[in-house]
Computed example of a mutant assay.
Amino acid sequence: MEVLISILPLLLMFAVFYFILIRPQQKRQKKLDEMRSEIQRNDRVVTIGGLHGTIDAVDDDKVVIKCGDGARLTYDRSAVREVLNKD
């Protein structure tokens, strides 16, 4: 019984960390992965570096972003931070 009482605070602390830190981060990562997998041509996006542009082509793990005066830049899908024209 004393062992259970001494382990209880440790278990409680782990549960708090899980529900406050770990679980929300997993949800955000899942949502981000889903958004990146649904990228299509002509989507307006922002990269993690702050580049704003329009998707010109999509490959398995790369996207071509058209920006500015017709410049086309190739990025990894993981570099896309958000899609601007999705609801």
Rank of each mutant, 00 (worst) to 15 (best):
M1A: 15
M1I: 12
E2R: 09
E2F: 12
L4F: 15
L4S: 14
I5H: 12
I5L: 15
I5N: 13
I7R: 14
I7L: 15
L8V: 04
P9G: 10
P9Y: 11
L10V: 07
L11M: 14
L12Q: 05
L12R: 02
L12S: 11
M13G: 12
M13A: 15
M13R: 07
M13S: 14
A15F: 15
V16D: 06
V16Y: 14
Y18R: 10
Y18P: 02
L21H: 08
L21C: 08
L21I: 09
I22R: 05
R23M: 11
R23V: 04
P24A: 12
P24Q: 11
Q26V: 02
K27F: 10
Q29N: 06
K30W: 03
K31E: 15
K31V: 06
L32E: 07
D33C: 01
E34T: 04
M35K: 01
M35G: 00
R36E: 05
I39E: 00
I39V: 14
R41N: 14
R41W: 06
N42D: 14
R44G: 00
V45S: 03
V46K: 14
V46F: 08
I48F: 12
I48G: 11
I48L: 14
G50C: 08
L51P: 02
L51Y: 03
H52C: 08
G53C: 03
G53R: 00
G53I: 00
T54C: 09
I55R: 03
D56T: 01
D56I: 00
A57C: 12
A57G: 09
A57D: 13
V58E: 05
V58N: 05
V58D: 04
V58L: 10
D59W: 10
D59C: 01
D61F: 07
D61S: 11
V64N: 09
V64G: 05
I65N: 01
I65K: 02
I65P: 02
D69Y: 07
D69K: 08
G70E: 08
G70W: 10
A71T: 07
A71K: 07
R72V: 09
R72N: 12
L73A: 03
Y75H: 06
Y75E: 04
Y75F: 15
D76Q: 06
D76T: 03
R77P: 01
R77A: 04
S78K: 08
A79L: 04
V80C: 06
V80F: 05
R81L: 13
R81P: 02
R81A: 13
V83H: 02
L84E: 08
L84T: 03
L84V: 02
L84K: 12
N85G: 02
K86S: 12
D87P: 00
D87K: 05
D87Q: 03
D87C: 00
